[in-house]
Design a protein around this nucleic acid. Structure first.
Length: 261
DNA sequence: ATGCCTCAGCTCCTGAGA
């Protein structure tokens, strides 16, 4: 089973690139973030033609998430049960016995801001829910745009960006607490190229200079960890014309989806 | 440097992203 996550920064603009990418990378599950469109504008037909069903949770202008799958899914849940939120940030479903959660974590803007406080409470809400989910779904994947770096290895300029958004100790505390529920960072399970980022600023030739951050992650549960065969960032589409500022992250797990569906 | 780029929208500027 291959799964991937990609913040597309407007599905309207990026749909052709998503279709191209799926043709070259026919993953079983693709979690999308920052759709920036409402469900009535979701491109179901184009994706169906490409062989993908879609569960979407859209929102006008901001946020919006979706799960694209080759096989049917069960028990679709939108956002975090028990955490009141007027933003469309999370969508989850059972795919061949695996609980798959796709998330667009809050940006947080700046430490000390209201948005930062919202990010902290959202992270707590997510953790309390994922803890419960893990009890009933030992096979679980949590992936998406986390908007948090694990440590300095995920940051192109750890000195200049020390304690700035995505790099604060409070954010990293929450990320470690999430991992401590029994999850593993897929990318870090394997040797990776140096300066392995998933997001690059549109400004200042960030991608060309590889001035980026690794903020898009795939976490797998304890039961899935021994089955993971590979996990990597695919920076190819970041070099497209009119690219998303994020690159997809892909994981390959030794499960046969057709056998399990 | 409260800048740089990109996107959506009450669109020719602004807010937000990261």
């Amino acid at each position: 089973m291959q799964l991937a996550t990609w913040n597309v920064n407007s599905l309207t603009v990026r749909l052709p690139q998503v279709l191209d990418w799926l043709k070259a990378n026919p993953v079983d599950v693709l979690a999308l973030q920052e759709l920036k469109l409402t469900d009535d504008k979701f491109p179901f037909a184009a994706l169906a033609e490409a062989g993908y069903q879609a569960q979407c949770f859209g929102q006008k202008t901001y946020n919006g998430v979706a799960l694209l799958t080759r096989e049917p899914v069960l028990n679709v849940v939108r956002n975090i049960p028990g955490f009141a939120d007027d933003m469309a940030r999370v969508i989850s479903a059972d795919v061949a016995g695996v609980r798959v959660i796709g998330g667009y974590f809050p940006n947080g803007q700046e430490p000390g801001s209201d948005k930062f406080e919202y990010k902290m409470s959202w992270l707590k809400g997510l953790r309390d829910w994922v803890r419960v989910e893990l009890q009933s779904h030992p096979q679980l994947v949590l992936m998406g745009d986390f908007n948090i770096t694990f440590d300095d290895a995920d940051v192109w300029d750890p000195v200049g960006l020390k304690d700035t958004i995505h790099c604060t100790e409070e954010e990293r505390y929450h990320l470690r607490a999430l991992v401590a529920l029994g999850l593993h960072d897929g990318v870090r399970m394997f040797p990776q190229p140096p300066k392995n980022y998933s997001w690059w600023d549109y400004r200042n030739f960030g991608f060309r200079r590889n001035q980026g951050l690794r903020i898009d992650h795939i976490l797998v549960s304890e039961a899935l960890k021994p089955l993971v065969r590979s996990c990597r960032v695919d920076r190819t589409p970041r070099g497209n014309e009119r690219p998303s500022d994020h690159a997809p992250v892909v994981i390959d797990i030794d499960l046969d989806i057709r056998e399990l569906t």
